[in-house]
Write a protein that binds this DNA or RNA. Structure first.
Lengths: 179, 179
DNA sequence: TCATAATGGCTTACGTTGTTAGCCACTATG
DNA sequence: CATAGTGGCTAACAACGTAAGCCATTATGA
C-alpha cells in the first residue's frame, strides 16, 4: 500500500475526525459522508466496505506513530523516553489507538515497511533482542490499553507502575528462574 | 452483584456459547433468544439492554478467571505459572477475553471482591508491590492481547517473549535508571 | 377462595446501521 | 466525436437493538 491521495485521503481524514471526536459509535458511513457533503453510498466508490476504510485509518495511524517514535530514538537510554512517547500517543488519540490495536492486523493494508519502522526504535533500545523488545512492547500496550479501558483502580499510581515496568525490562536479566 | 440464577443465568450461558463459537458478531439479541426458543424482545424482561447482558457475561468471565488463577498460586515461584495460566485462559476463550478487556469496566456489575480476588495471586507473586504487580499484569495482558489480535510477526517466538518478560519482571530491580 | 399482582412470554413496529442496485453527469482519451 | 472511466445520486433491503403493548401462567394475601 502506498500513501493515500485525493478523495480517499479526504475520506480517511473525515473518518479520523469523527472517530477522535466521538468515539467508535460516531464512526458511521453516513456521518463520514455528511461531513464531506456527500451521500453514504458514494463512499463505496472509494472503499469496498467500512472495514477497508477503517483499515486505511489504522494504517495512517501506524505511519504517524512510527514517525513519533522515531523522533525520540536519539536520546541515550531511550527506553523510558519511548515508553513516555507510547503512553502519550495512546492517551492523545485514545479511540484511534483502540481501533489500531483491537482489529486483527491485515498486513496487506499497511504501507510497506511501516511495521518494521515502528518496531525499530524499540528493538534498538532493547539491544537488538527481539524477545525483550516484544516483551517491552506488550508491557507498554498493556499499560496503555488497561488505562484507556479504565481497568486500574482509581487510586493506582500509573506513573509508578510504568516506571516499575520500564526499570525491570531495561535491566539485563540477573536471575532467570522461569524454566 | 450476587451470582446469577435461573433464567438470567441461562441467557448468559447461551450468550457465552454464541460468543465463544462465533465471535462478537454472532452475539446478537435475536441469536441469543433463538437459542433459548424465545423471541428477542423477551430478553428485555431480564436485562435492560444488550450492554447489561454483556456486562453479566464479562462478570462471569472474571469470576471464572479468578478461580483459575487462585488455583495456581500454591506453587513456589508462582509468577511463571501465573503467566502460563493467564495466557492459557486468554487463548482458550479468545472472544470472551477480548470482550472482558475491551469494554470500559463497570465496577457495579461485578460481584463484590472479584477484582481484588483476581489480582491477589499476582500481587502476592510480586512480593506485595502493587506497581510491580500492575506492570506484570500489563505485560501479560499486552502479550495475550497482541497475540489474539495477530499483532506479532508470524515468525515470532512467543514462548521466548513471555519468558523474557517474566524473567525481567520477577527479578528484583538492580539498576533503575528511569528517572 | 378468589382478586390481584408479578413474571415472562408474545407480536408488531420503529429508527439506525452497512450495503446493493441502478441511473446519470462530467471528464478524459482513442 | 464515440467511449470508457470516475464519482456523484436515489431508492431500497436486511439485520440490528429496542420500545410498546397484549396475554397467559403463577404466586400472594385478604
Amino acid at each position: 500500500m502506498e500513501p493515500l491521495t485525493g478523495r480517499k485521503a479526504e475520506i480517511v481524514a473525515a473518518a479520523r475526525d469523527l472517530l477522535e471526536a466521538g468515539g467508535p459509535e460516531a464512526l458511521t458511513m453516513r456521518a463520514i459522508a455528511d461531513r464531506l457533503g456527500i451521500q453514504a453510498p458514494s463512499l463505496y466508490k472509494h472503499f469496498p466496505d467500512k472495514d477497508a476504510l477503517e483499515a486505511a485509518l489504522v494504517a495512517a495511524g501506524f505511519v504517524e506513530q512510527a514517525e513519533t517514535f522515531a523522533a525520540v530514538t536519539r536520546s541515550r537510554n531511550p527506553l523510558p523516553a519511548l515508553a513516555r512517547a507510547y503512553r502519550a500517543w495512546a492517551t492523545a488519540h485514545p479511540h484511534l489507538y483502540v481501533l489500531m490495536t483491537s482489529r486483527r492486523l491485515d498486513r496487506d493494508s499497511l504501507p510497506e515497511g511501516v511495521e518494521a519502522a515502528a518496531a525499530a526504535p524499540l528493538l534498538k533500545a532493547c539491544g537488538g533482542d527481539p524477545n525483550r523488545a516484544r516483551a517491552a512492547w506488550a508491557f507498554a500496550h498493556g499499560m496503555a490499553s488497561l488505562e484507556l479501558a479504565n481497568r486500574f483502580p482509581p487510586d493506582a499510581d500509573l506513573d509508578a507502575a510504568w516506571r516499575a515496568g520500564v526499570d525491570a525490562l531495561q535491566a539485563p536479566p540477573t536471575t532467570p528462574r522461569s524454566t
